[in-house]
Design a protein around this nucleic acid. Structure first.
Lengths: 292, 292
DNA sequence: GCCAAAATGAAAAAGAATTACAAAATGGGG
DNA sequence: CCCCATTTTGTAATTCTTTTTCATTTTGGC
């Protein structure tokens, strides 16, 4: 399997550095992402007002082996985002559109989050969690409290002793009963809540380790031993709150999966199982309605 | 934008109906999904032990215009799942792999769920929810209870009166206080819990409408006015439980978004906002680390 | 076992991509 | 401001793929 290059990012980052005519090709490609893969080199050349050879050179400039290679890579880069943006507004029903847009936003957000994830932090967090005597999830507010519960649920099922608490007072009380070997896992979209900051400080005083899943650079993030930072643009858009919550849950999933594999030898098998259980690739789920 | 055909599903549904040699091509393609797009027709022919012409005929048989077309469509179908399966096992760290696999599974599951969603049911559900005087979410067991809470949270924020309950006894009691105009929303991965079935029956007796989000064809699904059925293969794989929960939350998100838009005129603007907030396509988030 | 129909492969034809090379544009120094 | 070296671009030849055609093989029914 070859090195995967994100062609779209590459084109954008090369903006301005390309030769004049190649830049014209890049502009044309970027504004017709969804169609490029079904055009021939010649057609693109004509549409962009350059020669076929220039289109080819452009492909090489962005790191591909040639036009063929470029077409495939672009198709792959575009497919993920595109699958949700197409669906001819005209023929698809409104509900259909709604589903596409919301699911699309979620998938997109998962992808974005994935790129933000810091490998080292995740690794540290997994190590801490796997070795914990007791894991306590703290979250405040409807959303984060739910994520905390979900996290506890998740780890509990894996056989790791976990619990979740949403009450600020109780959190502080509980924090003072912890000691070395225990892990506090603080969850907050904003990273601001004073209750959480207090609880973490207390827990740390008594020797417990701390992990935070929150906005990077926030007070909470700075306070914990390990911080998993995620920056999801949080404007007031209606669908956003749960989108970021979804991302949080996904991340906890990764941590749980990581903690569950104690021994290195089992990792390969573990990953293999996840891989083969991918629905699309492995199981026939019967005919899937396309537009309906 | 052309009609999107899910090539992989098509190949699977055609299994057995293809001509002998074409079936060989299909088998080869299906077991080398990630590489096909970078091979030529001739190479595939050789690898599958057939002639180039047969490969071409195979492409036409699965609904493509030719081999070129097939390659692109396959690349698109595969891209979503594939983006998580690559990452040269050799150079990527184990944690990295873990993140890729888990996120990939989630995205894949979202896609699968999306294809299973029944438009009509969603539309009905949205209508019911938007017009509800009171929405009561019922879920039993750790997972579904959390989803119920999340749902209540979600609708509550949108200004719709929603609450969630996880206790079986309380659910039955509450059910008997409902009446016309109220909506019971039952959530269950299995669709089996007796408490839920009872509660729904009771609520219906008193005139409340009912919606279920559960396994299609289950007892619960059959009992409610509107049933949103999802079949996520639920084996004992370690990451699965929360994956299906995630899908549930995503679906509730769609319902909430749908219910939030009361007037048709606002729909366009609403969708536009979601669309433009897609991170990948709209914002340059700077250079994205590929393998790290 | 023979014949008609279907399936397959070989090879020719058509079509695209790649390469080589020549022409045009650019830019720096006299 | 012009000339030369260098870079950029287009044209055309070449190579490689795909597509089509047609002959051969296989299959299945009688």
């Amino acid at each position: 399997m070859q090195q995967v290059i994100d062609i779209i990012s590459k084109m954008r980052s090369l903006n301005g550095e390309l030769r004049k005519r190649e830049q014209r090709v890049a502009d044309f490609v970027l504004s017709n992402l969804d169609q490029i893969s079904f055009l021939t080199q010649g057609e693109i050349a004509q549409a962009a007002g350059v020669s076929a050879a220039t289109v080819h050179r452009f492909c090489v400039s962005v790191g591909c082996e040639g036009f063929r290679d470029f077409k495939i890579r672009l198709a792959q880069s575009v497919a993920v985002s595109l699958q949700y943006l197409d669906g001819n507004s005209a023929e698809a029903s409104q509900t259909d559109q709604l589903v596409s847009q919301v699911f699309g936003a979620l998938v997109d957000m998962l992808n974005t989050a994935r790129q933000q994830l810091d490998n080292a932090s995740m690794t540290e967090a997994i190590a801490l969690l796997a070795g914990a005597r007791r894991i306590v999830f703290f979250g405040v507010g409807g959303g984060s409290a739910n994520v905390a519960r979900e996290g506890a649920n998740r780890f509990f099922r894996l056989g790791l002793p976990a619990e979740a608490h949403a009450d600020g007072y109780f959190q502080r009380m509980l924090a003072s009963t912890l000691s070395t070997g225990d892990v506090v896992f603080a969850i907050s979209a904003s990273g601001q809540p004073q209750e959480l900051l207090d609880s973490i400080s207390i827990a740390r005083q008594y020797g417990a380790s701390s992990i935070s899943l929150t906005k990077s650079g926030s007070d909470l993030a700075n306070l914990t031993d390990v911080s998993i930072g995620i920056d999801i643009p949080e404007d007031q858009d209606i669908y956003k709150p749960s989108a970021s919550r979804l991302v949080f849950i996904a991340i906890i999933d990764v941590l749980a999966a990581g903690a569950a594999r104690e021994r290195p030898e089992e990792v390969k098998e573990f990953l293999r199982r996840i891989r083969t259980s991918l629905v699309t690739l492995s199981k026939d789920t019967g005919p899937k309605p396309i537009g309906d």
